[in-house]
Design a binder for these strands. Structure first.
Length: 287
DNA sequence: ATGATTTCCTGTAGGC
DNA sequence: TGCCTACAGGAAATCA
């Protein structure tokens, strides 16, 4: 199906394009459906409204499914929203009720007059489900605030985020409170596309570099969305088919392979505790 | 205040 | 064959 993407690297992550793909497919498949029953296998992945989930969402209608940052949001009538944070290994699938339930399936939601059900599975449990109803003030983990969406971010706002920051541009881009939705894969891809070294202090980027970077971020994300995301080991679309953006990766998971621009081997280093792939020749600006 | 580091958790792969 | 260890990382917590 798909080969491992590099030595020791087999567990990539649903980032913005994957969450967008999931949200679009679930919207197409679920809009208008009415919740009939709920099974919660693990209560500790559920946060927000402290009441039993079934009591809150049963008989509510799905108004739509949207994305915010890397989160998939199922809007129900009555002002109730289910927010799925996929973490690293989270998957949302819409499958026939009779389909075998895979291990680490934590929540299943059925709908009236339908033969399928929505399943949330997350082996590593870095993700979770938030039931937001207006009564979630103190129950479970809080869901942190996130920064602006990169796809609609203006250049001036981006420049303000970078200004005077001494931390590396890579760690800044991963900070969800500053910009929402970028993860390790698309950070590396965007920095390569912009020709910027990931260790460059964010505030040291000049105007043209910052402009190049934001454009590269938008282009990278949009292309990945068009390809239905990257399918690696963990991420799958709700319909079970694969995305294809992994075939477009220029640096991520290509340690030791030749740069597609200059043929020099791709290198990796660790920034903010995360593996970072880069071309040492094409990406400049480190200081 | 800022940014770097650690922690949570499981599946997979590589070494022996 | 099977045990053991290292590693992947989003985001919150902790440290310097």
């Amino acid at each position: 199906m798909h080969a491992p993407i590099g030595p020791g690297i087999h567990e990539p992550v649903p980032e913005l394009p994957e969450a967008e793909t999931i949200a679009r497919q679930l919207h197409a498949g679920l809009a208008g459906a009415v919740v009939s029953s709920v099974r919660v296998q693990r209560a500790d992945i559920l946060h927000g409204d402290p009441r039993p989930l079934a009591a809150v969402i049963r008989r509510r209608r799905v108004e739509g499914v949207t994305r915010r940052a890397k989160r998939v949001q199922v809007q129900l009538d009555g002002g109730v929203m289910l927010v799925f944070r996929l973490g690293m290994s989270g998957r949302l699938t819409l499958v026939p009720r009779a389909a075998p339930v895979e291990p680490h399936t934590h929540v299943c939601i059925r709908f009236r007059a339908r033969g399928d059900e929505l399943r949330f599975r997350d082996p590593r449990r870095f993700g979770g489900v938030w039931c937001l109803s207006g009564r979630e003030a103190y129950a479970g983990r809080r869901m942190g605030e996130v920064g602006p969406e990169p796809l609609t971010l203006e250049q001036s706002a981006f420049a303000a985020i970078l200004k005077d920051r001494r931390r590396s541009i890579k760690s800044l881009l991963l900070d969800q409170t500053l910009i929402a939705g970028l993860g390790n894969i698309y950070c590396d891809e965007a920095l390569f596309a912009a020709g910027i070294h990931p260790l460059t202090p964010a505030g040291a980027l000049d105007g043209p570099s910052a402009q190049r970077l934001l454009r590269a971020i938008k282009r990278t994300l949009n292309r990945a969305i068009d390809a239905n995301g990257s399918t690696l080991s963990d991420y799958r679309r709700p319909d079970g088919l694969d995305g294809s953006y992994q075939f477009s990766h220029k640096v991520y998971g290509r340690l030791g392979e030749p740069c597609r621009r200059c043929r020099v081997p791709i290198e990796k280093l660790t920034i903010a505790g995360r593996t970072t792939h880069l071309c040492p020749v094409c990406q400049v600006g480190r200081r």
